[in-house]
């Protein structure tokens, strides 16, 4: 066996942590988009990831569509599910309080999970890696090519979202809804459409996360809940509603898990992440990059 030094190990932990963290970050961004517009914590966010993975498996591995075609179709299909979630579960509720809406998303997540179990069964599914499975050796660490895809898609998502929110009218309108929905609707912004759009966007990002992570971790019908919890942890760590916070939170969470498992004990991997989360909340209740002023005017 070739030399496998401690420094190499550390680098390996870092790469693994960043990859897993990127997935958490994408889930976290999805949470934030919906939260910013509606103040709802969408607990069905993890199901978008699961659906993204499973639909992609169906289109690419079973139906045989090429990657370049299956990818956008999957994202579109999951986006439709996101829209349906808004239309069927969120909008029909009369006199919604934020809590009722959150409970509605829990119900929706159970329904989506159950439907997925009926369609795909309980077995896990595999997806071929986008650019082969030959690992790359770099600084003594072994890197799967798929890692680059996961991290790459996080970067692309972040760039596109920044452009969307900063440079387009719709994006600015969405930010306005987040700021003050009543004033926004007085300005002629259709708040209901913005909510629909926020659900579509989160669903699309969830789908991207699911598609890119499936070649690494496989995907089955009940994977969503765990990813949602981890993603939510990342959101709280980074600060509810803050996009840079979500990314930072996700990456930190993933890296802590990886280093914790490698250097201390893998049995307490999840505990390390939670301890850091609690510690941060103790000293900065609004999260790393969250703003106290904003969190005061929010209802949840």
């Amino acid at each position: 066996m070739e030399e496998f030094s401690f420094a190499n190990q550390l680098f390996q932990y870092l790469i693994t942590g960043l990859t897993v963290g990127s997935v958490y970050a994408m889930v976290a961004i999805g949470f934030n988009i919906i939260y910013n517009v509606t103040e709802i914590i969408n607990l069905a966010q993890g199901e978008f990831v699961m659906l993204g993975g499973l639909i992609m498996v169906f289109l690419h591995a079973v139906a045989g569509l090429p990657l370049i075609l299956a990818f956008p179709i999957t994202v579109i299909l999951v986006t439709l599910v996101g829209m349906l979630l808004d239309r069927l579960a969120i909008r029909p509720i009369r006199q919604p309080s934020v809590l009722t809406l959150i409970i509605a998303t829990i119900a929706a997540s159970i329904i989506i999970k159950g439907t997925a179990m009926f369609i795909w069964g309980k077995d896990p599914f595999d997806l071929p890696a986008f650019s082969g499975r030959t690992p790359i050796n770099f600084l003594g660490a072994v890197i799967q090519p798929q890692y680059f895809w996961v991290i790459g898609f996080l970067i692309v998502t972040v760039i596109l979202l920044t452009l969307f929110f900063e440079k387009t009218i719709i994006g600015k309108a969405m930010s306005a809804c987040a700021d003050n929905p009543d004033a926004a609707s007085l300005m002629g912004i259709n708040v209901k459409w913005m909510i629909l759009l926020s659900f579509s966007l989160s669903a699309a990002i969830g789908a991207v996360a699911g598609i890119t992570v499936t070649p690494i971790s496989l995907m089955e019908y009940d994977r969503g809940a765990m990813l949602a919890i981890k993603g939510f942890g990342a959101v709280v760590l980074g600060g509810l509603g803050s996009f840079p916070g979500a990314i930072l939170g996700g990456l930190i969470l993933g890296t802590i898990e990886s280093f914790g498992a490698g250097l201390i004990s893998s049995g307490y991997k999840d505990a390390f992440a939670l301890i850091v989360l609690l510690a941060v909340l103790f000293f900065r209740p609004s999260g790393l990059l969250g703003s106290v002023e904003i969190s005061k005017i929010k209802r949840f």
Partner: peptide
């Protein structure tokens, strides 16, 4: 590792060591 974990590279890296 947990029953829903995504990646076990960290644990295996330690074992490799």
């Amino acid at each position: 590792y947990g029953p829903r974990d995504t990646d076990m590279t960290a644990q295996l890296t330690k074992i490799k060591g």
